[in-house]
Simulated assay, not measured.
Amino acid sequence: MTIALTFPGQGSQALGMGKALAENFSVAKRVFDEVDDALGQHLSRVMWEGPLEDLSLTVNTQPALMAVSLAVVRVLESEADLDIARDVAFVAGHSLGEYSALASARSLGVADTARLLRIRGEAMQQAVPVGEGAMAALLGLDFDDAAAIAAEAAQKDVCAAANDNGPGQVVISGHVAAVNRAIELAQARGAKRAILLPVSAPFHCPLMQPAADRMREALANVEVREPLVPVFANVLAAPISSPADIRDSLVAQVTGTVRWRESVVAMAAEGVDAFFELGTGKVLTGLAKRISSGARAISVGGPDDVEGFLAALTASR
């Protein structure tokens, strides 16, 4: 069995996430404490007690999801004898999950990752005035068709393919008027559904350029090390390892397409036949099953999942 570790992105958050890990494993509690200290905020309290509106703020959601993912990594290293350099072929994360992937592979420190994601969340939220941008899911169209619709709908505005999540599941992003035009075009051209998404900003499109500029500056001021294993970059759908490439990829990711479907296909072509999603939710687990037929896909998010991971890891050795 050849393993890839995957890490979820925004939308997977839920109240109480990570609490059972902290209560059952001291190594997990230390991750949440480190993130709280790095941010100067009791983020873990927001994660466990709410309110949900506060957890759903982009500036909180991004470091919170990373914290849970890294807590899972530390628990698996402690309790299941996971050695990423020995046991894992690749790591990859969806959007902000790419930061979690890099931290899991020791390319970024946990505290630096938390601070970067706080900056990223603030920058992405502030890049476009509220009400000017939108995102929509186009379901039932392949990526090329969805991207063509976005380009046609743009006219003098911005509209672009933001996420290529899986077969027939593409998200577009841009100015409100352009996204609405794209929805109409998609419906006329056979999309099963075309719906606006409840998001606070138009992520992963050229409107995010101010946020990309801010992330370039932020990333220049943190240590980025070569990861223990290659990281599949969202914007390249290919593995990278050099610190310079990692910095460039994370900057490009802010405005670029999250090429998740292609990344899973490419990892499978490299021999990966087991995708373990570490953190909150099961979104990437479901996508892996759809994208890579026959691959094993398992989510690990709480204490009850550790034994199953250990059994799978033992069987792979």
Rank of each mutant, 00 (worst) to 15 (best):
V130A: 15
D87R: 08
A101Q: 08
A85N: 05
L57I: 09
L313C: 05
K29Y: 04
Q62S: 05
A162V: 08
A80N: 08
A38I: 04
M215A: 04
R214T: 14
A268E: 10
R189F: 03
V265E: 15
E77M: 13
E34S: 15
A153T: 01
L278A: 08
L39C: 03
N60M: 12
V224Y: 04
D213S: 12
R118V: 03
I119V: 14
V264E: 00
G18F: 02
S200C: 03
A101N: 01
V88Y: 09
A150D: 11
G133P: 08
L39N: 09
G279Q: 07
Q13S: 03
L96G: 01
S100H: 06
Q209A: 13
Q13L: 09
A211M: 07
A153N: 05
V68F: 02
R181V: 07
V91W: 06
V110T: 11
N221A: 14
V130N: 08
L185I: 15
L65S: 04
G301M: 12
G301A: 12
L313F: 06
A233C: 10
E49Q: 12
V176F: 03
E226D: 03
A92F: 01
A162D: 04
R106N: 11
Q209C: 07
A212E: 02
L57A: 09
D37L: 14
D142A: 05
K19M: 15
G11Q: 04
E217L: 14
T257Q: 14
H42F: 06
A153Q: 02
D305N: 14
A161K: 02
T314W: 06
V46I: 15
R259I: 02
A297E: 04
A182G: 12
Y99D: 00
L15Y: 08
P227R: 07
G168Y: 06
D112P: 09
E184Y: 09
L52A: 13
V110I: 15
P230Y: 13
L141K: 02
V88M: 09
V171K: 02
A146N: 02
V171W: 06
V170F: 01
A218I: 03
E98F: 09
P63S: 04
A71P: 06
Q187K: 15
S316F: 14
R106W: 02
H42D: 15
R74Y: 04
D33V: 12
Q169C: 07
V128K: 11
R317D: 09
P63R: 07
G301C: 10
A311Y: 13
R181E: 00
E98Q: 11
V265G: 09
S242R: 13
V300R: 07
E226M: 04
F25A: 08
V128R: 06
E79Y: 07
S104R: 02
G93I: 01
V229N: 06
F203D: 02
H175K: 13
A244G: 06
C159K: 00
S292P: 05
A71L: 07
I183V: 02
F25Y: 15
R261H: 10
A268H: 11
V199G: 08
M208Y: 10
K289N: 10
K192V: 12
V272F: 00
F25D: 00
C205M: 05
E270F: 06
W48V: 15
A105G: 10
L219C: 11
V199S: 00
